[in-house]
Amino acid sequence: MSLYHVQKLLFHLNNVPSVRRRFDAEREALLAEYRLSDEERRAVTHADVGKLHLMGVHPLLLAPFAGRVGLRWPDYLAALRRAREAAGGG
């Protein structure tokens, strides 16, 4: 696990327009520049916010990322709740 690097990627995605453009145009190449595990890479690639939440990504990094990938606010919250329930956290 490399939570720091996942969060660093989201921080850049949220704040740096050129990183955002690369996320859309060449996602695989961009993600290769960050030290992510396969599981983390998959979660970011598919914008699996529930998974990222369970991994411990800070909500103030995750919520803007969800907005960037077009997830509506109620759907974002529902995804987090579903992930918690599936993990037995309620």
Binding site: Y4, Q7, K8, F11, N15, H58, L61, P64
Partner: peptide, 9 residues
Amino acid sequence: EHFTNFFFD
């Protein structure tokens, strides 16, 4: 701070 100017680095 809200991850606007600073990060864990």
